[in-house]
Amino acid sequence: MLRRTIPIIILSATGTMLVVAYFSPFTLSWGETVLDWFNILAAVAFVLGAGNLLAVNLEKVSSRKAGWAYAAITLLSFAAMFIFGIFKVGAVPNPSAPDVHLAGAYEGLPSAFGWMYEYVLSPLTATMFAMLAFYVASAAFRAFRAKNVEAILLLGTAFIILLGRTAAATLLTGWIPVDSAFAVLRLDNVTTAVTEHVSTAGMRAITIGIALGVAATSLRLLLGIDRSYLSKG
């Protein structure tokens, strides 16, 4: 009973307080206090996340599940970054306290943490993102097929945007005078028109729909009708 009632009371009270604080200057400081709690919880979530990462990957390694080597690499990387950060390995001495090692800056080069960021983490994340180009090209070749009217419309729009978002727009249709009656046919203008009148209009509709959904869901949560976040219905 308490395991369900207390979370509902906390959620309803804090949610209501934040809503009231938005409209009433008298409760502004209450709202700030709630936000402070949220920020503390967000910081604690990092600790929970790290604990969960350790638990999941240790379990994978110990039971030799498929891909356990990746889990081992994750654990090693986590441990290395944790030790480099906590003990400030190779930290740059702080000018105001040069003799105190832990007063030094641990993030920049030549500290071990900074080195790992600069030469391991940064190139790896950039590489992961860059690889998208290859997979997108492969997926476009296999899946982007003009099978019906909707797909043809999508293809046409994709071609306009793909050309319009590069110098191809200028190279192909730049010869059409800007002040002529045919200026609407310039690819850059067509791209702008598609973006402003089609894409943005659709996005607005989606955004309004999401906002209404969020409002409805929030109300259900505040009133204790939706209890799915308690994990057991």
Partner: peptide
Amino acid sequence: LVAHLLMIGLILLGN
């Protein structure tokens, strides 16, 4: 630009 042109070419070829 070249990557976008390749994408267009691949889509056309696929179709």
